[in-house]
């Protein structure tokens, strides 16, 4: 399924106060990452609905990355646990659709985590490149 030179499309769910400023800082410092990375900012990473993750795969995103608040979350001390539950539910839905569960990842990104974010995007892009296009995966499984 490996596709040479294939640039995977990634949807990132970030958070207004914690991870989005970290992603902004990556741009500010011109730390380049794949231009196929798109970001939706929410108040809290525990507010991502699994159906939005599935929608991303339907629309051709090869991977979904949740830039979580982790312990820095100002809304709930259980944020990491709740976000993880969302990932688990999304993976259940992905399995139903025969979508490889490696296509979803979560990591804590803080408000100054510019370099970690860029590194995560690089690593995730590499994994997704190995997996190839999600459209092909969905088509071959249907």
């Amino acid at each position: 399924m490996k596709t040479e030179g294939y640039a995977p499309k990634i949807l990132v769910f970030s958070t207004d106060k914690i991870s989005d400023p970290g992603i902004d800082q990556a741009g500010l410092r011109k730390l380049h990452y794949s231009p196929k990375v798109y970001v939706i900012s929410l108040p809290c990473s525990s507010g991502v609905k699994p159906r939005w993750i599935m929608k991303a795969f339907e629309e051709g995103f090869d991977g979904v990355f949740i830039a979580a608040d982790g312990h820095e979350c100002s809304y709930s001390p259980k944020c990491a646990e709740y976000t993880n539950n969302i990932i688990v539910e999304a993976q259940r839905l992905m399995k139903e659709r025969n979508i490889n569960t490696k296509r979803i990842r979560m990591a804590a990104i803080c408000s100054v985590c510019a370099e970690p974010f860029v590194n995560h995007m690089g690593t995730f892009s590499k994994i997704l490149s190995e997996l190839g296009s999600v459209k092909n995966e969905i088509a071959s499984n249907s």
Partner: peptide, 13 residues
Amino acid sequence: KGCGICAPVCPSD
């Protein structure tokens, strides 16, 4: 607080 944590846990959306 508008955090949205309640939204993904609702079984009937």
